[in-house]
Structures are given as structure tokens and as C-alpha cells.
């Protein structure tokens, strides 16, 4: 019983992390159709900012959290300005490849200027403690992840439904041209989407740091790949789908971890992707995706 509860929390926490990152991707994709492969490097940039802050002697955990989030927003908005604005009106493929290129550049810049090897950064390890809730031992980090994902999700729903900018963003996801005809500046809506996405990246960076206790050039890439898979499961471009897909992915992973004998641990990733592919066989458009009819946006 205790074991089952433990694993349930495990799955929820994993799922929450994937859902956060997947939401960050979906916010940008739904508005400007950009498949942001460089998102993992925004997460890595946040972590490296903390590393540099510690290196110059700024080692307060709370400040580090703020710094990571600020860096996430800054990096995301900056990338939009420098790299993605020139290809905003280009076909989807062009944006995707641009983001892929940006991702390679950033990963290699981290290698070049800091180190190809992981750097230890135990500053935020304090977030990851074992708490006793009644008879159960739970990880404080997992509880925080779950709580943050719920709060962030709720805040996102509030923002998108109750604020002018949020409503403009939702409208932009449907029909950008009409939004601009209403006198809302496109640059502002897009920048807001990237800032929101960067905010989520910063939060994700804090969690990844607290769990790993180190930074590495490719620390974000694999996580974002999982988040992409979560988006695909949920249906690309749907925010609710991204959150749901993240949770499904978390449950698949933890489920495999429980069911597989320890010596097969290595094939967990492989099996996860195989299950995902099987899911797509049943629903090629994703769980929450809708099959677009001819005459709608390009399939």
C-alpha cells in the first residue's frame, strides 16, 4: 500500500515536470506555430546562470530560484528577438529547423565556454528532502513539483481567460490576422508568449537542478524531447493536451520502472517511446487533438 502510494506520487511528480515543460512548448506553438527545439537550452541557460552566480559568491537558494526564473524569461524573449522573429512568417519547417540550429549553437557554446562535462551545483539540493507525512516518507521536491504544476496550471488558465493579453493570446492561436486587425500589436502578443514560456522553463530549471545537483550542456535537451513527446501524445498545439500528455508520460515511465526488473532498467526509455508510438497508432492526432478537416489550417 505504502509502495503503491509512493509510486503514485512519483508518477504525479514526473508527470508534473513533463507537463510544465510541455505547457511551455505548447504556449509558443499554439500562437506562432514554432516547434521550439531550443527550449531545453533555455532551461540549461537558467541553470548556468545559477552556476555563474554561485561562482561569483551569490549563493542564496532563494535568490537562485529568482535568478533562474528571470534568466529563463530573458533567454526566451531574447531568442525570439534574435533568432525566431526573422522566420516568423516562414513555413513551419523553417521555424523548426531554425530552433534546432539555435539549440545546437547554444549547447556547443556551453561546451565551449564552460565545460563539456557536468558541473556540480548542489545549491538547491536542500529543496529535495525526505519528509514524514504520517507513516509515509515523501520527497519534498516531488510535493513541490506537484503543487507548482497545479498552481502554474491554474494561473495559466486564469491568465488566458481573464486578462486582455491572455485573451489576445488565445485569439492569436486561432487567427493571428484578425487579432492584429483589432489593433493588438503582434510583437507584444508573441513576446508575451515567449516570456510565459521562459517563465515555465525557469521553474523547470529549478526542479531539474534540485534533483540532479549538477548542470550539463545537454541537461535540457532530453527533458524537452520528452515534453515534445508529451505534446504529441496530447495533440500538438493544445494546452490541455500538453498537460494531459505530460501526465500520461509520467505514468508510463513510473509504471515501467515498477514493472520492469532492475536489470532491464536500461531499456526503460526505449519501451517508453515504443508505448508512445503504439498510442499514436490508435490516435494519430493525439488524445486531445482534433482531426482537421480540409479547408482548415494546413494539416
Amino acid at each position: 500500500m505504502e509502495y503503491a502510494l509512493q509510486q503514485l506520487l512519483n508518477a504525479l511528480a514526473f508527470g508534473a515536470e513533463y507537463a510544465l515543460v510541455a505547457l511551455g512548448l505548447a504556449v509558443v506553438f499554439s500562437i506562432m506555430g514554432l516547434v521550439n527545439f531550443a527550449y531545453g537550452e533555455i532551461i540549461a541557460a537558467s541553470a548556468y546562470a545559477v552556476l555563474l552566480a554561485v561562482a561569483v559568491g551569490l549563493a542564496a537558494p532563494l535568490a537562485a530560484v529568482g535568478l533562474a526564473i528571470a534568466m529563463g524569461i530573458l533567454a526566451s524573449v531574447l531568442l525570439e528577438r534574435v533568432a525566431f522573429r526573422p522566420v516568423r512568417r516562414a513555413p513551419l519547417t523553417t521555424g523548426l529547423l531554425t530552433a534546432f540550429g539555435v539549440s545546437i549553437v547554444l549547447q556547443n557554446l556551453f561546451q565551449l565556454f564552460i565545460s563539456p562535462r557536468p558541473q556540480a551545483l548542489p545549491l538547491l539540493n536542500g529543496l529535495n528532502q525526505t519528509l514524514m507525512v504520517g507513516p509515509y516518507a515523501v520527497s519534498s521536491l516531488q510535493l513541490m513539483q506537484l503543487a507548482t504544476a497545479i498552481v502554474a496550471g491554474g494561473a495559466l488558465v486564469w491568465f488566458l481567460n481573464r486578462t486582455t493579453l491572455g485573451i489576445a493570446m488565445r485569439a492569436a492561436a486561432g487567427d493571428f490576422a484578425t487579432v492584429r486587425l483589432q489593433g493588438i500589436r503582434a510583437d507584444r502578443v508573441v513576446a508575451a508568449a515567449f516570456a510565459l514560456s521562459g517563465l515555465l522553463a525557469g521553474i523547470a530549471a529549478v526542479f531539474v537542478l534540485a534533483r540532479r545537483g549538477s548542470v550539463a550542456p545537454d541537461m535540457g535537451f532530453m527533458l524537452v524531447l520528452k515534453a515534445f513527446v508529451a505534446c504529441v501524445i496530447g495533440g500538438f498545439g493544445s494546452l490541455a493536451g500538453a498537460a494531459l500528455g505530460g501526465m500520461v508520460l509520467g505514468f508510463i515511465e513510473v509504471g515501467l520502472l515498477v514493472l520492469l526488473p532492475a536489470e532491464y532498467g536500461g531499456i526503460k526509455e526505449t519501451l517508453t517511446y515504443c508505448i508512445v508510438i503504439a498510442l499514436l497508432l490508435l490516435r494519430p492526432e493525439g488524445l486531445m487533438g482534433t482531426r482537421r478537416e480540409l479547408g482548415d489550417k494546413e494539416a
Partner: peptide, 13 residues
């Protein structure tokens, strides 16, 4: 290390 990677990425971007 990583220079060729940067170059490849810049070529793409």
C-alpha cells in the same frame, strides 16, 4: 571543443 558544433548550428540558423 564545440567549435564545429557552433559552426553547424550557425549554418542552419
Amino acid at each position: 571543443l564545440g567549435l564545429s558544433g557552433v559552426a553547424l548550428g550557425i549554418v542552419i540558423v
